[in-house]
Design a protein around this nucleic acid. Structure first.
Lengths: 231, 231
DNA sequence: ACCTGAACACCGTTCAAGT
DNA sequence: ACCTGAACACCGTTCAAGT
């Protein structure tokens, strides 16, 4: 109303520093996570991006854990929930949704790690929960089991993604991971058959299979298990 | 042989600074984890305890992740593996072993978090793996399934323990966790039945049950699932 | 009332230089 | 050859003081 067309001409230099707000902070954090990865999204770095000091963020965000939860909830917006209403086997559709959830986390394993410790509870997360419960109900899973099955399924997907998080500290990556895998394979090969017969017998089979195959099998194990295990 | 009885009398002040070694470093780290918790066992703090600078540790330990893995493997020595050779139902015995593994991790959730990212591969871990595989074999689980079931079972126990890890940063504790739980309960109560009918229908049931009950049920779900899910 | 500079109390890791 | 002081490049969080 009484707003000047080009109002406060004070000290504004280029892109105009927008006022801080929780949404703005989270949105900037999401953009930063997308472009540079979670490791770089520290309170200090985020503050710098917003052209302020880190202390200012604490007016809108309780701590780093809460920030991560908010970022994750935002990213969860890209989970494909359409299989809820698609025709076909309910287990396959449920696994497709969980797989989509897993995909999001696989791109940000550090967030998966956070999610394990501080479960998100935002809008998008709630939508995901609703979708999973809807399909479990469609499959005839009793309510009391569905409640716990939900956690089992999401925890499995989350933990599997978290396994790929970079270890803190010095930048490692593919090479480190491969090295680790080789080391583990060597340990297994070197395991004496007389002290660890079962390990020796299975040998390389213990490491067989792609992550995707294992994930899919794990989901089916959980679903079959839920169907066969009353409380 | 040619050792002087009270040899190098040089600069030694009281408890005699022992020479550094990988074992000594890990043993000190374990003691420190036991007495002060993982959060306090940083490279710097550990070096201080050993009366040297942090750089010296890197002669014996590649990085923090490796140190954590070594500490965990040591602590795994207190996992009770006796149920392997005890009479009784194999599933119950297996769950007892997994429960004992879980107990160790529950005391050090931060280590559980590390274990998720950098799987241990030490002696004690191998003993645990052997025990789990032995019982799966006793239960008639085919080898190819047992190999993957092993990971599923250990990952579930590990992830469940990791959930209790303290969020990095400012010291939180019981009160923070209770607050979080209340917040989640409030979100569930406030969930509209028309947008999220299944969430609303289950309501507080979603949070029902103690951690122990859920853990036990989870193990049984996994075992039943494994028995019913070929690869 | 709202915001934040500056400080507090730390980190992991590396590497040039010492013994 | 082995070890390490000192530096590099950071952290999260708080709070007294400013506007």
């Amino acid at each position: 109303m009484t707003e000047h067309p080009d109002a406060p001409r004070s000290r504004r230099e280029r892109p105009a520093k927008p006022a801080l707000s929780r949404n703005g902070i989270v949105a900037t954090a999401v953009a930063l996570v997308r472009s540079e990865g979670l490791q770089r999204v520290t309170m200090r770095r985020l503050a710098q991006e917003l052209d302020t000091g880190p202390a200012s963020l604490y007016v809108y965000v309780r701590n780093t854990a809460e920030l991560h939860a908010a970022v994750l909830d935002d990213l969860l917006g890209s989970v494909d929930l359409t299989p809820v209403t698609t025709p076909g086997d309910w287990q396959d559709r449920l696994i497709r949704i969980l797989g989509s959830y897993g995909d999001v986390l696989f791109e940000h394993p550090g967030l998966a790690q956070s999610a394990l410790v501080a479960r998100p509870s935002g809008e998008r997360y709630l939508d995901l929960v609703e979708a999973v419960l809807a399909l479990l109900a469609e499959g005839g899973v009793p309510g009391d089991r569905a409640a716990w099955a939900l956690d089992l399924l999401l925890q499995f997907a989350t933990a599997t993604a978290a396994e790929h998080a970079p270890r803190a500290g010095a930048g490692s990556d593919e090479s480190d991971r491969a090295e680790e895998w080789d080391a583990l394979a060597a340990v297994l090969r070197g395991t004496a058959a007389d002290t660890h017969p079962h390990v020796a017998a299975l040998g390389a089979d213990l490491l067989a299979g792609s992550g995707e195959e294992r994930l899919d099998w794990g989901f089916r194990v959980l679903l079959n298990g839920v169907l066969h295990t009353p409380r």
